[in-house]
Design a protein around this nucleic acid. Structure first.
Lengths: 206, 206
DNA sequence: GCAAAGTTTGACCATTTGGTCAGTCAAACG
DNA sequence: CGTTTGACTGACCAAATGGTCAAACTTTGC
């Protein structure tokens, strides 16, 4: 049968291998587009062996998604109410953009799931995510009211950070097609542009 | 066999019906997730009947995508070099946001395709789309150099408009989950927020 | 009113795919 | 060692799915 949590070295290693392969395949093909055969081939394991470690294709997907959610929200969690508002928000933007650059597969996996209406993580969105955003939004509103940043709608500010940074991972193909082959790495320019955008949005800094 | 262009009333009507149903299914399930059976059921036709009008599942998808590309780029085409720069850009943002609100399925269909690496429309992105963006970017740079708007990286400005507006269609599930049931329609607030964001980005207006 | 052209479908097919299972092989442990 | 536990696989299955086709039914134009 399958195993809920890794116990032996072999289980530890193979579960990792499978999840890595599944991330590769799910993020580029979507849930239904991905096949167990392809994941197995990518992982270098046999299909029945996959199903020895995970109960089903869906179980792999859910494990991947829930595991991802945690690290994905870390940058937002790090937003510190006691820090300098502008620097905190700009640092958040920078960290999110780095994640788009360094973990584009994770971003696409997530985008795929939301596009489908988030069938596997709707509860997380309405629970954990909403609670976290509520908390941070209050923090931003407090900054705004104390005049430390220009007045903004805090939740839409957060949406705009998500949209702008994830765009460079999720729509990478389009970005590169438009920029053309002369500009092979969009990220340095994206960082400058986003820093400028949010600087102007948040008002004069010093 | 199949038919390249509608000739009779029946063909006209049925091709429309099929494309409408296919848009519904493809945009919510992705290409591989969609099945001909489901498209047929949604269209109220039999599966062989679908394949009388379109050569294959892929043909339906490609027809939908290429047909979409045109209307999708209309707002950008409308960006007028002779108009008032701020008003032109803000109107473009508004128009794109309206499209996210009124045609979310089209936006998701497009997002799905780009996420997969744009296998069906890569040529369009590198050709038509790039050329259009190049042209409009030059226009924006000219505005910028004449001091009519603050200095911005024109291509990333366009990316940011796409990202921010499409986010409200593609990530609708997440947006609504975070805002909660009290705020059932995110769009009015989104419009105010985006207008403020781009106003501040583009510099003092009057 | 009827032949030709266009439209629709039930039955069918080959392939793909998620998943099972009996049994083999490898490792750990006393 | 030998046995128990864990890791692995070839062969297989049922369901789903994209697509075909001959035949039946409708519409159109004369």
């Amino acid at each position: 049968m399958n195993v809920a949590k890794p116990k032996t070295r072999i289980q530890e290693r193979n579960r990792r291998t499978i999840l890595e392969a599944a991330l590769e395949v799910f993020s580029s093909q979507g849930f239904r587009g991905a096949t167990l055969d392809e994941i197995a081939a990518t992982a270098g394991l046999s299909k029945p062996n996959l199903l020895y470690y995970f109960a089903s294709k869906e179980a792999i997907h859910v494990t991947l998604l829930t595991g991802l959610m945690d690290t994905w929200l870390d940058p937002l969690r790090a937003l510190n109410g006691d820090g300098d508002p502008r620097q905190e928000i700009l640092a958040y933007v920078r960290r999110k953009l780095e994640m788009s650059r360094d973990y584009p597969r994770e971003s696409r996996l997530f985008a795929n799931e939301i596009l489908r209406g988030a069938p596997h993580i709707d509860a997380v969105l309405q629970g954990e995510l909403k609670a976290l955003v509520d908390e941070k939004a209050r923090m931003i509103e407090a900054w705004s009211q104390r005049g430390l940043i220009s007045p903004v709608h805090a939740r839409h500010l957060i949406f705009s950070i998500w949209a702008l940074t994830q765009h460079y991972a999720d729509f990478d193909t389009q970005v590169r097609a438009v920029l053309g082959p002369d500009e092979p790495d969009p990220f340095p320019e994206a960082e400058r542009y986003l820093e400028m955008l949010f600087s102007r949005l948040l008002g004069p800094g010093d």
